[in-house]
Design a protein around this nucleic acid. Structure first.
Lengths: 197, 197
DNA sequence: GTCTATAACGGGATAGAC
DNA sequence: GTCTATCCCGTTATAGAC
């Protein structure tokens, strides 16, 4: 816990780079500059780039799982949890510099391993499952208006958040994200409505 | 019109490749194989890769503008136009193989020129303007339920369509797209509702 | 664990013959 | 317009010294 071991420092640099530039947009040479050891030394820790990516996705999935669990712990209403979810994706943008790792890797060319593709699908599955539960709760606590089928709500919410990230990053403009997600927030803010969708 | 000139054949191949693999995911060597002329010959038509990308985006923007105009021409209700819009993005997926060129390039690394970035923003601006008009019409013809501010509706609809494309492509599964966009379609299909958002 | 050195390859791009 | 040949660079990855 006390010393920042090299592997962790490498993963930190790699996560940043991958979320900024995508899978094919960063090299061991880039990491070498940031971390201060030679590319050959990086290969000692992660023999192939795919090993790096795999470790990255595993760590990232766990980190997001924790954040989603914390939202459940800290917030009672489904509406607040969705607001927390949107804020998670907003924060991940870092002012338009970085995407969610999952989105960033999704775009990479077919350089990706089957294993990595599976991890990406797993990650989306984890998020979709969480969203689905929140929308199921929403059907009960009424803190989100016009709730439809939770599964469809979850799929739509994730697509909205990811799409909003993509356009915000491509113009490095956070307003794009805020604008695209404003309607979703309005379904929560202004209190429950009698009308079902 | 009769002979397929080399430039057009190159653009066709490049568009397919770019939408499939992103900016850094295809090379002149790839085009060379598909088109049947050497890489040096491609440089004759497009001296630098950025020239190719610029020409690609220009042509693409015009093509989509035509398709959107055709939707306006063929369809009277705002609801049908949005359904047409979603189908446009669905078709662009080609079964999970290709993205909208704009989305595919958005993910590329910072290899992109300032000019290209401007073109990408322009393209989104064109689509957003069209969507905004459709939602403004919706506020009048009532063929879409719970219509909010047209500008926010447009931003949300574009993010939804792009995000749905990304997840569908990353798993090569069209159902992801259909699932994520189902709610939007339901706002149209089942007739107008008395409830405002 | 980290280094130097190097292999092996693929990328964009140019020169000059035809 | 298309070709062959070539350049230069960046990338992943390995061998072997320290």
């Amino acid at each position: 816990m006390v010393k920042a071991d090299t592997k962790t420092v490498l993963l930190d640099a790699a996560e940043w780079a991958a979320r900024r530039h995508g899978h094919d947009g960063f090299s061991y040479a880039d990491l070498s500059k940031h971390v201060g050891i030679r590319t050959a030394s990086i290969h000692y820790h992660f023999p192939a780039k795919t090993d790096l990516i795999t470790a990255l996705m595993t760590r990232y999935k766990g980190a997001i799982a924790k954040k989603l669990a914390k939202l459940d712990q800290d917030l009672d209403s489904s509406g607040d949890r969705i607001l927390g979810f949107l804020d998670l994706y907003r924060t991940a943008l870092n002012g338009g510099d970085t995407l969610c790792l999952c989105v960033a890797l999704s775009m990479g060319r077919d350089t990706l391993t089957e294993e990595t593709l599976r991890q990406i699908a797993d990650f989306r599955g984890q998020t979709l499952a969480w969203l689905q539960e929140v929308f199921a709760l929403a059907a009960q606590d009424g803190s989100i208006r016009n709730v439809c089928d939770p599964s469809k709500e979850a799929a739509a919410a994730l697509a909205l958040a990811e799409g909003a990230q993509v356009s915000a990053r491509s113009e490095q403009n956070m307003q794009r994200f805020d604008h695209a997600t404003e309607m979703m927030r309005q379904r929560i803010r202004s209190g429950p409505s009698a009308a079902a969708l």
